Amino acid sequence: MPRRLRPSGDHLLGLFRIVTGFLLACHGVAKLFGVFDDGPVPVGLWPYWWAGLIELGGGALVATGLLTRPAALLCSGTMAYAYFTEHQPHGLLPLQNDGESAALYCWAFLALAVLAPAALSLPAAKLRLAAARGAKAHPPGTAVT
Rank of each mutant, 00 (worst) to 15 (best):
T85W: 09
A111V: 15
P40N: 12
T64S: 13
T78R: 10
A60G: 12
A80L: 13
G39D: 11
A82V: 13
L92G: 09
A103T: 13
E100V: 05
G57F: 02
Y81S: 14
A51H: 09
A118Q: 15
A82S: 09
L120R: 05
C75T: 09
P117L: 13
L93E: 01
C75R: 07
L73R: 12
W46F: 12
V62M: 00
A111E: 13
A103Q: 08
V41Q: 14
A102I: 00
F84C: 06
G39S: 13
L110A: 15
G58E: 00
F84A: 03
E100Q: 08
G65W: 01
A108R: 00
F84R: 03
A80K: 00
G52H: 06
L45S: 12
E55Y: 02
T78W: 05
G52W: 09
L53W: 09
A63D: 15
W107C: 04
Y48K: 14
F84M: 11
W107G: 06
A71L: 03
A103G: 02
R69L: 03
T68F: 01
L112I: 14
L120F: 14
E86C: 15
L110G: 02
V43M: 11
T64Y: 05
A102Y: 02
G44M: 07
P40A: 10
Y81P: 08
A51D: 04
D98P: 07
L73F: 13
P47Y: 01
T64H: 08
P47L: 03
L92E: 06
A103W: 04
G59R: 00
L66W: 08
V114W: 10
V41W: 06
A80T: 10
P47H: 02
W107K: 01
L67C: 12
G57V: 00
A111S: 15
W49D: 08
Q96D: 10
M79C: 12
A60N: 09
P89V: 11
L115Q: 15
R69A: 04
T68K: 07
Q88I: 09
E86D: 15
W107R: 01
L115E: 07
L122R: 08
V62S: 00
A113R: 07
L45D: 10
P123E: 05
A72D: 02
G57A: 04
L92S: 11
